[in-house]
């Protein structure tokens, strides 16, 4: 009984060993089927290195049936099929770049989750920094002009004594000629206020 079991096991092992090269050959033939792929740039990958790179490249490919998810993050059948294709191509020795270009030739640039930093896409990469710089420049300009205004006001009031300033600030409500800094367009309103508060 035990001998029969061992015999069956050996037969199964032999079958596996003989069929494995055939499976590999079939797979590589499928890879070569698409002439767009060309010749692999790298050496074939396997094991943890293959899994790590598959994960990395899949995370850069957009799942076509999801909203803003990568193929690595989506459990959908389409995403799983695409991840399997990434794994198969990397295992055959195609580089990560070759795999991304292959997907791009089929789906267009939309399939890349990160747009390439070239041409019109540069706007996406540069605009945030450009807007940050413009914003910082505007804030700096604003701060500088308010500082200059403060300094100017201080220099105007500096030679006068504190009591003089106090007197002026009391007078200013009564004497319209003593208000050079005020906006002349508001004069009508100011006049109305004066009339209304007049005792």
């Amino acid at each position: 009984m035990a001998t029969r079991g061992v015999g069956l096991g050996l037969a199964l092992l032999a079958l596996l060993l003989t069929s494995a090269p055939a499976l590999v050959a079939q797979d590589s033939a499928a890879v070569e089927l698409d002439p767009r792929l060309g010749v692999p740039d790298d050496a074939p990958l396997s094991g943890p290195a293959l899994e790590a790179l598959t994960q990395e490249i899949s995370s850069l490919i957009r799942c076509p049936v999801c909203q803003g998810l990568s193929v690595a993050d989506s459990p959908t059948t389409s995403a799983v099929a695409m991840q399997d294709e990434v794994r198969r191509l990397l295992a055959a020795g195609y580089s990560g770049d070759q795999v991304l270009v292959y997907f791009e030739t089929s789906y267009g640039e939309f399939i890349r989750l990160e747009p390439k930093a070239q041409g019109f896409n540069l706007v996406v990469w540069i605009a945030p920094f450009a807007f940050l710089l413009i914003g910082a420049a505007l804030v700096a300009m604003r701060v500088r002009s308010s500082r200059a205004q403060l300094a100017d006001n201080a220099s105007r009031s500096a030679p006068r004594s504190a009591s003089q300033s106090q007197e002026e600030s009391q007078d200013v409500d009564h004497d319209p000629h003593n208000e050079p800094e005020r906006d002349p367009s508001l004069e009508a309103y100011r006049q109305r206020v004066r009339e209304e508060v007049k005792p």
Partner: peptide
């Protein structure tokens, strides 16, 4: 069966 042809054609859905 593997969806490979659909991928090669860039099928979204």
């Amino acid at each position: 069966p593997t969806g490979r042809t659909a991928i090669a054609f860039g099928v979204y859905g």
